[in-house]
């Protein structure tokens, strides 16, 4: 054996002390499965299945929510969400352009707006919108609760979407603007025709996630004081559950949210994957 051997790692074939890493890993995995099974068995043994069935899976109570669950509650949730999203989309785009403006005060205004509305809970925004008539007597938002909901969800999502759009616009290669300008397009024309369409494609995944967030946040509309016709999913579930003194409607409502949020999340991941592949 040469002198070099003292620097070499012990050969894998040599006998070692204790367990090999692979054996340790296997034991660890068996233990993890065992813990899972034990927890599951204990939960099943302890739960009062009869009570759970009556309280949470009460089909009779669940049936009483139909068809209003879909025709009123879900419909309103979708209306609140989409109108807030539309407002946030437009305002967010404007804020992003302000954020990137060469005019400094526009940049400041945009930053201030974004910082404020990303830092406030939506609940608080709704409370403020509710008290707007105190500041401006006789003032009324068009659309009543629908207008207030769109405004509340819109001003907050605008702040988040502005940051998304800004990142998206900056992610479009600089050469795109140069090519557009070299063809004689003014800056704004180039933005609208060349840059923004590409930026929107880039931010499609985060915007989809934004839509999911809004869908969930639309439940806070209940703070505005809604009538039976304006009720959205969360309040609908809560009301039904009080009426029948049974939590099943809350579970049903939850499932209805998931019916939308899970596919949307899937769409967002698909868009993201496609973008990753396209680059």
């Amino acid at each position: 054996m040469s002198v070099v051997t003292e620097h070499q790692a012990p050969s894998p074939a040599e006998p070692r002390k204790g367990l090999s890493p692979r054996k340790k890993q296997r034991i660890s995995r068996v233990v993890q499965y065992a813990v899972l099974v034990v927890v599951f068995v204990v939960l099943v043994a302890l739960a009062d299945w009869k009570a759970i069935g009556e309280s949470f899976l009460n089909l009779e109570v669940a049936g009483k929510g139909l068809p209003d669950l879909f025709t009123v509650a879900l419909r309103n949730t979708v209306i609140y969400t989409l109108s807030g999203f539309a407002l946030g989309f437009v305002a967010g785009l404007v804020l992003a352009l302000m954020r990137l403006s060469s005019v400094a005060p526009y940049r400041w205004l945009s930053v201030i707006y974004i910082e404020i509305f990303r830092g406030l809970p939506i609940l608080l925004i709704f409370l403020m919108i509710g008290s707007l008539p105190l500041a401006f007597p006789g003032f009324e938002l068009p659309g009543g609760v629908y207008g207030s909901a769109a405004l509340g969800l819109g001003v907050v999502s605008a702040a988040y979407m502005a940051e998304n759009f800004r990142a998206g616009i900056q992610a479009v290669p600089k050469g795109q603007m140069e090519a557009a300008r070299s063809l004689g397009m003014p800056h704004m024309r180039a933005m609208i025709t060349i840059i923004i369409p590409q930026a929107i494609r880039i931010v499609l995944p985060p915007l989809t996630n934004q839509l999911v967030m809004l869908l969930k946040d639309s439940s806070l509309v209940l703070i505005l004081g809604v009538t039976a016709a304006q009720v959205e999913l969360a309040k609908f579930g809560n009301d039904q559950s009080s009426t029948y003194a049974n939590p099943t409607p809350i579970l049903v409502t939850g499932l209805t949210y998931l019916l939308i949020t899970i596919p949307l999340g899937y769409v967002a991941r698909r868009l993201e994957a496609r973008q990753g592949a396209g680059r």
Binding site: P173, G175, Q176, E178, A179, A180, R181, S182, L183, G184, M185, P186, I194, P197, Q198, R201
Partner: peptide
């Protein structure tokens, strides 16, 4: 400058076609 650029064609190293 936009009017002037209309008559000056430019070809870039990275092509800069509009991919969308």
């Amino acid at each position: 400058i936009d009017a002037a650029r209309r008559h000056i064609g430019m070809v870039f190293q990275q092509f800069n076609l509009f991919p969308h």
